[in-house]
Nucleic acid binder design. Structure first.
Length: 128
DNA sequence: ACAGTGACAACAT
DNA sequence: TATGTTGCCACTG
């Protein structure tokens, strides 16, 4: 398991580590992930990190990242402009029991993930 | 080292 | 409520 990247790991790697901890059937937001990693305003970087997963398509180490479980703060699938990917994200989520609205909206009160606690995050980013 | 870029978020109209 | 603008952060060339 590669859950705890070394301190030299980039922010992207930290993002992947956190997303891999999101339970099946649950979702979280870009902002929440960023905040867990100590970047309350780094939501955009989180989205960029997940986007970069495509560049590692062949690498299985990145293939197990459940990117579909990360949505925006409004509880919606945020890649609407890329209809193909949005549809796939919705399909993947429904496949694991998450109710996705016709407008690609999800009830965060029902499916939202609590997130990692202090110690879990420390193990990932290697800080305290 | 610098500017451009992007699966976000918050605020203003 | 809906649309537009501004601030953020980290990676790439």
């Amino acid at each position: 398991m590669a859950a705890a990247p070394p301190p030299s790991a980039t922010f992207f790697d930290h993002v992947y580590a956190v997303v891999r901890r999101v339970p099946r059937g649950r979702v979280t937001t870009y902002g929440a992930v960023a905040q867990m990693l100590g970047r309350p305003r780094g939501a955009r970087a989180v989205g960029y990190a997940l986007n970069a997963l495509k560049d590692h398509g062949d690498d299985s180490a990145y293939g197990d990242v459940p990117w579909q479980r990360v949505i925006n703060a409004q509880g919606r699938i945020s890649i609407v402009n890329r209809a193909f990917d949005a549809a796939e994200q919705a399909a993947r989520l429904r496949a694991e029991g998450v109710a996705v609205d016709d407008t690609l909206r999800i009830d965060l009160d029902r499916f939202g993930w609590d997130g990692l606690d202090w110690a879990e995050v420390a193990a990932i980013i290697g800080r305290r």
